[in-house]
Amino acid sequence: NQASVVANTLIPINTALTLVMMRSEVVTPVGIPAEDIPRLVSMTVNRAVPLGTTLMPDMVKGYA
Score class of each variant (00 low, 15 high):
Thr18Gly: 04
Thr53Asp: 14
Leu17Val: 04
Val41Ser: 04
Lys61Ala: 15
Val49Ser: 02
Ser42Trp: 10
Met22Gln: 00
Met56Leu: 13
Asp58His: 14
Ser42Ile: 03
Asp36Thr: 06
Val41Lys: 06
Asn8His: 08
Pro57Ala: 13
Pro57Trp: 08
Thr15Glu: 10
Ile13Pro: 10
Ala3Met: 09
Ala48Asn: 10
Gly31Phe: 03
Ile13Asp: 13
Pro50Ile: 07
Val27Arg: 09
Ile13Leu: 12
Met43His: 08
Ile11Trp: 01
Asp58Thr: 10
Thr15Asn: 04
Met22Val: 05
Ile11Val: 07
Pro29Cys: 06
Asp36Ala: 10
Ser4Thr: 04
Ser42Lys: 10
Pro12Asn: 15
Gly52Trp: 04
Ile32His: 00
Val27His: 03
Ala3Glu: 13
Arg23Gly: 05
Ala64Arg: 10
Leu55Phe: 08
Gln2Pro: 15
Ala16Lys: 08
Met22Lys: 00
Glu25Thr: 08
Val45Trp: 00
Pro50Leu: 12
Asn14Arg: 08
Gly62Phe: 07
Ile37Asn: 00
Asn14Lys: 07
Arg47Ala: 12
Asn1Pro: 15
Asp58Met: 08
Ser24His: 13
Glu35Gln: 07
Arg39Cys: 14
Ser24Thr: 12
Pro12Val: 15
Arg39Tyr: 13
Arg47Ser: 11
Pro29Gly: 03
Arg23Glu: 03
Pro38Trp: 12
Val5Phe: 02
Pro38Tyr: 09
Thr9Pro: 01
Leu51Trp: 13
Met21His: 11
Ala3His: 14
Val20Leu: 15
Ala64Trp: 04
Glu35Ser: 10
Ile37Ala: 08
Val49Arg: 03
Tyr63His: 04
Thr54Phe: 02
Met43Val: 03
Thr15Trp: 09
Leu51Asp: 08
Ala48Lys: 08
Val41Thr: 10
Met21Asp: 04
Pro12Gln: 09
Val6Phe: 02
Tyr63Gln: 04
Thr54Arg: 04
Leu55Pro: 00
Glu25Leu: 06
Arg23Phe: 03
Thr18Tyr: 03
Leu17Cys: 02
Val41Cys: 05
Val60Asn: 02
Ser42Gly: 13
Thr53His: 15
Met22His: 00
Arg23Met: 05
Leu17Thr: 00
Val60Lys: 00
Thr28Cys: 15
Asn1Arg: 03
Ser24Leu: 08
Ile11Ala: 01
Pro29Arg: 03
Ile11Phe: 02
Pro38Met: 09
Ala34Gln: 13
Met22Glu: 00
Pro29Asn: 05
Ala34Ser: 13
Ser4Trp: 03
Thr44Lys: 08
Ala16Tyr: 14
Leu19Arg: 12
Ser4Asn: 02
Val41Ile: 12
Ile37Cys: 05
Glu25Lys: 06
Leu55Gln: 02
Ile13Arg: 08
Asn8Phe: 05
Val5Met: 02
Thr54Gln: 03
Ser42Arg: 11
Asp36Gly: 05
Thr28Lys: 04
Val49Asn: 01
Thr15Cys: 05
Pro29Gln: 05
Met21Ser: 07
Thr15Leu: 05
Val45Ala: 04
Ala16His: 15
Asn46Trp: 08
Thr9Cys: 05
Ala3Ser: 13
Ser4Gly: 05
Leu55Glu: 02
Arg23Ala: 05
Leu55Lys: 00
Asp58Leu: 09
Ala7Pro: 02
Ile32Asp: 01
Met56Arg: 08
Thr18Ser: 09
Gly52His: 13
Ala3Val: 08
Ala16Gln: 15
Val30His: 10
Met22Trp: 02
Gln2Ala: 09
Arg47Phe: 15
Val60Cys: 02
Pro12Ala: 11
Ile37Thr: 15
Val20Asp: 10
Pro57Ser: 13
Lys61His: 11
Ala48Met: 12
Tyr63Thr: 03
Met43Thr: 04
Ile32Asn: 01
Val27Phe: 02
Pro33Ala: 10
Ile37Ser: 04
Pro12Glu: 11
Gln2Asp: 15
Asn46Ile: 10
Asn1Glu: 15
Pro29Ile: 06
